[in-house]
Amino acid sequence: MQSEYPIPGNPWPREMLITVEDRPTTLLELLWIRETYALHPPGDDLPPMLELTPARAAVQLDAATRNEWENTWARIWQGAAAHACREHDPALFEQLQGTPPGSTEREALLRQLFGPDWGDEMGRGAFDDASYTAWEQTMSDAHMSTRLERLEDSPEWRAVSALTTAWRGGLTRIVTIPCRGEHTRRLTPHGLLLTAATRTDLAAYERALAPS
Score class of each variant (00 low, 15 high):
Asn67Met: 08
Asp120Trp: 04
Ala58Pro: 02
Ala80Trp: 07
His88Asp: 10
Trp77Arg: 00
Thr72Ser: 14
Leu113Val: 00
Cys85Ser: 03
Ala91Tyr: 08
Pro101Cys: 00
Asp120Glu: 06
Ala91Phe: 09
Ala64Leu: 09
Asp62Lys: 08
Ile76Val: 11
Phe93Asn: 11
Leu109Gly: 01
Pro90Thr: 01
Arg66Lys: 12
Ala74Leu: 11
Phe114Ser: 14
Ala81Pro: 07
Ala74Lys: 05
Ala74Met: 07
Trp69Ala: 00
Gly98Asn: 13
Gly119Tyr: 06
Trp69Val: 01
Thr104Gly: 13
Gln97Val: 05
Pro100Arg: 14
Leu92Arg: 00
Asp120Arg: 09
Ala81Ile: 03
Phe114Glu: 13
Trp118Cys: 02
Gln112Trp: 05
Gln95Cys: 05
Trp73Asp: 01
Glu105Ile: 01
Trp118Lys: 03
Trp73Asn: 03
Leu113Met: 06
Ala64Tyr: 04
Glu87Ile: 09
Leu61Lys: 00
Ile76Gln: 02
His83Leu: 02
Gln112Phe: 06
Arg111Thr: 14
Gln95Lys: 11
Ala63Glu: 13
Arg66Glu: 10
Asp89His: 04
Gln60Glu: 15
Leu113Lys: 02
Leu96Asp: 04
Asp89Arg: 01
Asn67Gln: 14
Glu94Tyr: 10
Arg111Gly: 15
Met122Phe: 10
Pro90Ile: 00
Pro100Trp: 12
Arg66Cys: 11
Ala63His: 03
His88Trp: 06
Trp73Ile: 02
Thr104Glu: 15
Ser103Cys: 08
Leu61Gln: 02
Arg75Lys: 14
